[in-house]
């Protein structure tokens, strides 16, 4: 199994996780007149992919990687519990809960706009709820415990991808894909554009989608643990050395690299997201 079929399910707009309710800033751009037709939309989507798309792809890849390690640790714990039938240890640290909080905080630090954080958490909460029923796993349970108010969408997406059997690159691709397909579909409805014309724009973006997933994973692979954020990583594994095979140490080492993940910001998207909240007639949540 290589996760391809699961990837299709995860990226499908018919996945019942509420993604259709978000326009990713397109509705406000249409209201302000900065997106009026297919040409503007093409530039909008390309810029969105190069900024928010890359950031979400990198976070999704990181979450997928963490979930894979985390479930390894949890499997070991379940094994221990089966051998020693007593009350399970109430130690959150063993479940990776602090690491999930830390990754979600990295997403927060890359999302200056409170409106965008709100939209990301709403979508993340719904996706996590759906994923826990479709692909139940210890990692998804830990994520839900770690961020009860709802994790950022790419964090939930990466954890769901791992639970469905996808690799980090597939999680990154799904995140990049959803960063432009939702806005594109919204534009069709808002501007009455020809759906085939808009899907042609998405087809033109296919190479950029693959590049984005590649760059996102490379940013994770190339990153070395933070050297000047003393209590920021909680790892203590410096000089970029790979830790041993112990799952918890491996997860901590991964977390120490998250500081360097891309944070490409798009000031116009921030302004659009906040402006959208002031629109009393809005059709989309964001």
């Amino acid at each position: 199994m290589n996760g391809d079929a699961a990837l299709l399910l995860l990226a499908d707009s018919r996945l019942p996780a509420g993604g259709h309710a978000h326009s990713g800033g397109v509705e406000e751009a249409v209201r302000r007149g900065t997106v009026t037709g297919a040409g503007d939309l093409a530039r909008f989507l390309r810029g969105r992919l190069a900024t928010a798309g890359l950031v979400t792809a990198a976070l999704a890849a990181a979450a997928c990687e963490l979930a894979a390690v985390d479930s390894g640790g949890s499997a070991g714990r379940e094994l221990r519990a089966a051998c020693d039938p007593g009350p399970p240890p109430a130690d959150d640290a063993a479940d990776g809960v602090p690491l999930w909080r830390r990754l979600d905080a990295e997403a927060d630090a890359r999302t200056a706009s409170p409106a965008q954080r709100g939209a990301a958490r709403t979508q993340g909460r719904l996706l996590l709820r759906t994923a826990r029923r479709m692909w139940p796993s210890a990692a998804l349970d830990a994520l839900a415990r770690a961020v009860p108010e709802g994790p950022h969408h790419p964090v939930a997406l990466g954890a769901a991808a791992a639970s469905a059997g996808c690799a980090p690159r597939q999680a990154a691709l799904a995140a990049a894909y959803t960063s432009v397909t939702g806005p594109a579909t919204a534009a069709v409805r808002l501007l009455g554009l020809d759906p085939v014309t808009v899907h042609r724009l998405l087809a033109d973006l296919a190479p950029a989608l693959e590049d984005t997933a590649h760059v996102a994973c490379a940013s994770l692979d190339d990153a070395v643990p933070a050297d000047d954020e003393p209590d920021g990583c909680g790892a203590g594994h410096h000089q970029g050395r790979q830790p041993g095979r112990h799952p918890e140490r491996q997860a901590a080492w991964q977390a120490a690299r998250w500081h360097a993940l891309p944070g490409h910001s798009a000031p116009a998207l921030d302004l659009l997201a906040e402006g959208h909240l002031t629109n009393p007639m809005k059709l989309f949540v964001s």
Binding site: G47, A50, S265, A266
Partner: peptide, 15 residues
């Protein structure tokens, strides 16, 4: 990160 002078972001109504 802010990117300036790159084709993908220049003139994009999203950026």
């Amino acid at each position: 990160d802010l990117l300036v002078g790159e084709e993908a972001v220049d003139g994009s109504p999203a950026v």
